[in-house]
Amino acid sequence: MTTTDRTADLFAYTLRLADDAAILGQRLGEWCGHAPTLEEDIGLANIALDHIGQARALYTYAGEVEGEGRDEDQLCFLRPERQFNNCLLVEQPNGDFAETILRQFFFSAFMLPLWRELKASKDETLAAIAAKAEKEAAYHLRHSAEWTIRLGDGTTESHERAQAAVDHLWPYTGELFEVDGVVERLAAAGIAVDPASLRDEWHATLREVLDEATLRLPPDGWFQTGGRSGRHSESFGHLLSEMQYMQRAWPGLRW
């Protein structure tokens, strides 16, 4: 394999991780000032800030790998919809508090082992980013798991809402484990993590928490796909038009 191919793969992989973090951070930021309690307003903002921080480090690195002089903001604010490669799960609208919590729980349960494995990446920058992100993901998982338990095993209404959130988000989780050429080649080279290897742990985490929450895990079956190749939900374009408004309306200025 040529160096150019390897560079293209690394750019694509880093960008996916960056897009996941940026888009989830964007969604969580929408909550600020509107959460169910003041304590939770602050808690959700902390998680959003972690994701935005991860996105910044990852975009910056992706720009370096690409070598065309694009910085974190050009990558985040000046790419069109079809060039974003985040998974569909993170772009799902906030919905009610249960949907936000379950989205975070499904994602963090996946990202915690992913960052842990990625610490051993042969790519030193990714390994360093992973080392920091692992601790953040561990707290996100704890926070969202504890809330999942309380919503699931709280009142009849909260149980119903939490189960509806599980059922609604479930079809978007299959994509987390998809492997394409980029991941396959980089995993073989010891740079990326093969997500298939995380599946058992992810399942075990879900089963444990959802059991305690008296929530039912839907059967595997049909899963949504498309995010990694830039085919997103309809709502995603609206997220981008809001997020990218300033850079699109006043191109090329410093802020």
Binding site: A35, P36, T37, E40, D96, F97, R150, L151, G154, T155, E157, S158, R161
Partner: peptide, 9 residues
Amino acid sequence: EGAWVREAA
């Protein structure tokens, strides 16, 4: 909209 969450907790 947060009432059901606080009640659940």
